[in-house]
Write a protein that binds this DNA or RNA. Structure first.
Length: 128
DNA sequence: CATCTGACACTAT
DNA sequence: TATAGTGCCAGAT
């Protein structure tokens, strides 16, 4: 790596967001599926699920097919949905009607230092 | 600079 | 289960 470029890294917060999301998506193994919200959270940007979609379309080289909506629903429209479904099935992911069988194919993001699974409880912000 | 839209999620009905 | 309303943030017009 060109250490010259590593000097300062003027990465904008937005670029960091994209990089984080990109990284999270790349962590999804083949035959596995994740959701926008999960990726956003894993990237460190909860509630930014929308940005995940934007990154997927803008950034090339990402397994976009492994990303679906909440509950395994395909948020795509038209033929893109069929394409995603086709690709996922090709990877071994099974579908249940219009949704993905998340029960068996949802990928779990591992957090650095994540020990004692179960103790690691995610805090859900109470609204209202 | 203001407004709308979007590969979403969540809650309520 | 399906539909509607609301919140979120960035890009496009």
């Amino acid at each position: 790596m060109t250490s010259e470029r590593n000097r300062k890294l003027p990465l904008s917060p937005q670029q960091a967001l994209v990089a984080a999301i990109c990284n999270a998506i790349r962590q999804i193994p083949r035959g596995r599926v994740s959701t926008y919200g999960a990726i956003a959270k894993a990237a460190g940007y909860p509630r930014c699920a929308r940005h995940v979609g934007r990154v997927l379309k803008q950034v090339d080289g990402l397994p976009w097919q492994r990303v679906s909506g909440s509950g395994g629903r395909i948020s795509l429209r038209g033929e893109m949905a069929m394409e995603q479904r086709f690709l996922l099935e090709a990877e071994g992911v099974h579908f249940r009607g219009r949704r993905v069988n998340m029960k068996a194919f949802e990928h779990r993001f591992v957090r650095a230092g994540g020990k004692t699974p179960g103790t690691a409880r995610k805090k859900r912000l109470p609204r209202k």
